[in-house]
Amino acid sequence: MRFAYVNGRFCRHGDAAIHVEDRGFQFADAVYEVWSVRNGQLMDADGHFGRLARSLGELRIPEPRCRPALEHIIRELLRRNRVRDGLVYLQVSRGQARRDHAFPKKPITPTIVLTCKRLDFAAADARAATGIAVITVPDERWARCDIKTVNLLPNVLAKQMAVEAGAVEAWQVDADGFITEGSSTNAWIVTKAGTLLTRQADHGILHGITRARIIECAQRLGLDVVERAFTPEDALDAREAFLTSATSFVTPVVSIDNNVIANGEPGSLTSALREAYLGEA
Rank of each mutant, 00 (worst) to 15 (best):
2 R>E: 11
4 A>E: 02
5 Y>P: 00
5 Y>I: 00
7 N>E: 08
14 G>R: 13
18 I>D: 10
26 Q>R: 15
29 D>M: 13
31 V>A: 02
33 E>C: 04
42 L>G: 14
45 A>K: 14
50 G>I: 00
52 L>Q: 01
54 R>L: 08
56 L>M: 07
63 E>F: 05
64 P>M: 09
67 R>H: 05
70 L>P: 01
71 E>I: 06
73 I>F: 01
74 I>A: 05
79 R>A: 15
103 F>D: 08
104 P>W: 09
108 I>V: 15
116 C>I: 10
122 A>F: 00
131 G>I: 01
132 I>F: 03
133 A>G: 14
135 I>W: 00
137 V>R: 11
142 W>S: 01
143 A>M: 13
149 T>E: 08
150 V>E: 00
151 N>L: 10
151 N>R: 10
153 L>D: 12
153 L>A: 09
154 P>G: 04
155 N>Q: 14
161 M>Y: 00
167 A>L: 09
171 W>Y: 14
180 T>H: 01
181 E>V: 01
183 S>Q: 04
186 N>I: 00
197 L>D: 04
198 T>M: 06
207 H>A: 10
211 R>F: 05
214 I>H: 09
218 A>I: 07
230 F>I: 06
234 D>H: 15
252 P>D: 06
261 I>C: 10
264 G>P: 04
275 E>F: 07
279 G>D: 04
280 E>W: 13
